[in-house]
Simulated scan of single mutants.
Amino acid sequence: MPTVVHQPIPIFIGYDPRERAATNVLIDSLYQHSSVPLAITPLVAPQLVNQGLFHRERDPKQSTAFSFTRFLVPYLMGYRGWALFMDCDMLCRSDIKALWDQRDDCYGAMCVQHEYVPGETMKFLGEAQSNYPKKNWSSLMLLNCSRCTNLTVDYVNTATGLQLHRFHWLEGDHDIGAIKGGWNHLVDVQRLPDQEEPTPMLHWTLGGPWFRKQRTMGGRLAAEWFSARDDAMKLWD
């Protein structure tokens, strides 16, 4: 029998106006592959500013408009239930329910625990590449919102970038669970698995084909992104 889903999966996407195309293609890829209803909310910084929820100065090391807004998700959820956050520079290739089903109440947050030390100093559009422990862990997070009450509006606006991205708002590393199954594959950073084991979520962390100067980023994966874009924009007679 099919799984009964009582509420749509709440998904929050980091939004940067320079990556509108990436956001739109990601949203379409999520819908196209999902077997259950989804409730998708892009985190648009000016909207959060207008609500009085976000007012911190832009950090020189901040490469996207959503570097810090992602940590408002538990507040936006009323610190209830689970929510999923993901960067906009991703492409979903499989049913997001398989990721959602990994939720484990033993943890306050879950993520793909990369061991990634950047070798480059710059990434897309000349943005600086920062290096810190748990790099990219916060780019895709399952958040157990009732366990994330330290992420108050004040804390999100005043904590350092490292405090936020290194999960200092949890009790400790034992409170961070691991998402399994290749759900945050770093394009042009990690080696792709064999075709027989397709990666369910691609992440162009260094910049993707929606940027004019990076149209071939990821090789055949760039072509796949353009194919997904074209499919989303298909005209019907």
Rank of each mutant, 00 (worst) to 15 (best):
T3L: 14
H6S: 13
P8F: 02
F12Y: 14
P17W: 10
R18D: 15
R18Y: 11
R18G: 12
E19K: 07
R20T: 15
R20E: 15
A21E: 15
A21C: 14
V25C: 08
V25Y: 06
I27T: 12
L30Q: 03
L30G: 13
S34R: 03
S35A: 05
S35Q: 01
V36K: 13
T41I: 01
A45C: 13
V49N: 04
V49H: 02
N50S: 15
F54R: 02
H55M: 07
H55Y: 13
R56T: 05
R58A: 09
K61Q: 12
S63I: 14
S63C: 08
S63F: 10
A65G: 02
A65D: 12
F66H: 11
S67A: 14
R70P: 01
R70C: 08
F71H: 06
V73W: 03
P74M: 07
M77R: 14
G78R: 06
G78S: 02
Y79F: 15
G81C: 03
G81K: 04
W82H: 11
W82M: 09
A83H: 00
L84A: 05
D87K: 02
L91D: 05
L91E: 06
L91C: 04
C92G: 06
C92D: 10
R93Y: 00
S94E: 14
I96G: 02
I96P: 05
W100R: 09
D101Y: 00
D101V: 04
D101F: 01
Q102A: 00
R103C: 10
D104T: 04
V112E: 07
V117R: 15
G119T: 10
E120W: 11
E120Q: 14
F124Y: 15
L125K: 10
L125M: 14
E127K: 09
A128M: 12
Q129W: 07
S130F: 04
N131G: 11
Y132F: 15
K134E: 11
N136M: 15
S138W: 02
L140I: 08
L143D: 00
L143M: 13
L143S: 00
N144F: 00
S146R: 11
S146F: 03
T152H: 03
V156H: 02
V156C: 02
N157L: 01
A159K: 06
A159G: 01
T160F: 03
T160R: 07
G161S: 10
Q163F: 00
Q163S: 08
H168R: 12
H168A: 13
D173A: 07
H174R: 05
A178T: 13
A178L: 07
A178R: 12
K180T: 12
K180A: 09
G181R: 00
G182E: 04
L186E: 10
L186C: 03
L186A: 03
V187T: 01
V187K: 00
D188R: 00
V189A: 07
V189K: 03
R191I: 12
P193W: 05
P200S: 00
H203C: 05
W204P: 08
P209D: 01
F211C: 14
F211E: 08
K213R: 15
T216F: 09
M217A: 15
G219I: 02
R220H: 12
A223M: 10
E224I: 07
A228D: 03
R229N: 11
D230H: 14
D231C: 13
A232W: 04
A232G: 03
A232L: 07
M233P: 00
L235H: 08
L235S: 08
W236M: 13
W236G: 07
D237P: 10
